[in-house]
Design a protein around this nucleic acid. Structure first.
Lengths: 209, 209
DNA sequence: TAGATTGTTAATCGATTAACAATC
DNA sequence: TAGATTGTTAATCGATTAACAATC
């Protein structure tokens, strides 16, 4: 339970969360690891092992309570609390994320958008202010921001990340096509959207083997 | 060389491609696996092993030619040719993707956007026509489309995927928060954007261990 | 040639799966 | 209690890393 938890396990947690949310929405109350196994195309042993990294949530002879397991995973992922977020860059991706309703619903509250383009500064996107990049450093001194979303061009990403980290941000969700580096006490999730398109092209061409 | 190539290897290819593109842009002509190792934070053995899945691109005592290795990887990934693409759904994500200039530059040519919203049908987004979902099936009969990008709500995703596959599409890039299923002769890349945000939250809360 | 670096085999490590005793 | 299903240990599998002979 306090062994180091592998990234493979962590990356399966959102999948469990999604699956359990769906079950819960359908009114399903309990589920066994073998039923989950079928529904999610994962091995039942793996599911039990994954969950037991965090605690014994099941009950022998019964299975797992959908509602409480979902709740546990929300808590493990840390998505049961509110985060203050800024978006840097109001281009296509920045805008799409600013408009994405689910973020607010799930507690990721977008407090401001920053951009270098003077045509955009002062405007609002989905009722969120667009501020000047020049003011980012000062802004971070007064506001308590947890997460920065990088939607800048490649060249600016690392510099902006540095400013965010210096300003106390501990999580960066990076959409720029470059691996941004952060110190050990912060964390970055590099997205690399087009990598997925390349992998898709690979399999379309070569088949699955 | 004709062993089954593991998905782990395939998912590293875009990373190699990005790194080599950067080197090439900087005018670097040759690189050794150990230099790549440092630049990419990957083990040098792993790099040599990965590349040798596809052929012996290096030269003992010299290393790899940046330009030709980049070219080889482009070819392996199948991104050295043109793909015809349709986007389904003209919401936030659909629009952002429609506006994304790099796709066209890299040979992913967006031929049309489909939507159910009559307010959007007939309009243009970044000079690409928005057509009615009702016409998708017919459209696919006359046009040769390789890739469908799903940017629909969750509930519609699987149905639309089925129509795309029936219409001859072999690759689906799915942004809807659900795992879409396709037959064995097609391939789907499920994106699940918010999973990354959850994983980010996890590490922000728990640290890396 | 001597030095460098690959391609590849062998060793290690970690993740997945199977098995089963514990227990609800 | 009997049946079901977990939690967990042991076995297997695959991926990563190390080592080194081949060779440019």
């Amino acid at each position: 339970m306090d062994e180091k938890i592998s990234e493979a396990v962590v990356r399966r947690l959102p999948k469990y969360y999604r699956y359990l949310s769906d079950l819960d929405a359908l009114g399903v109350e309990r589920i066994s690891s073998s039923a989950m196994s079928k529904g999610m195309s994962l091995n039942a042993s793996q599911i039990r092992r994954d969950l037991n990294c965090f605690g014994g949530f099941g009950q022998q002879g019964y299975g797992y309570s959908v509602k409480s397991l979902k709740q546990e995973i929300m808590h493990i992922l840390g998505i049961d609390k509110a985060y203050h977020v800024v978006i840097i860059g109001s281009g296509n991706i920045g805008q799409a994320l600013a408009f994405y309703k689910n973020f607010a619903l799930e507690g990721y509250i977008i407090k401001a958008i920053f951009d270098v383009d003077s045509n955009r500064i002062g405007k609002k996107i989905n009722n969120i202010e667009v501020l000047s990049m020049n003011d980012l450093e000062t802004y971070l001194k007064t506001e308590n921001i947890h997460i920065g979303i990088l939607a800048t061009p490649k060249g600016a990403a690392q510099d902006v990340a540095d400013i965010l980290i210096k300003g106390g941000v501990t999580g960066i969700w990076n959409f720029a096509p470059i691996d941004v580096k952060v110190p050990d006490n912060a964390y970055v999730e590099n997205v690399h959207l087009s990598d997925g398109l390349y992998v898709l092209s690979y399999y379309m061409q070569r088949g699955r083997f």
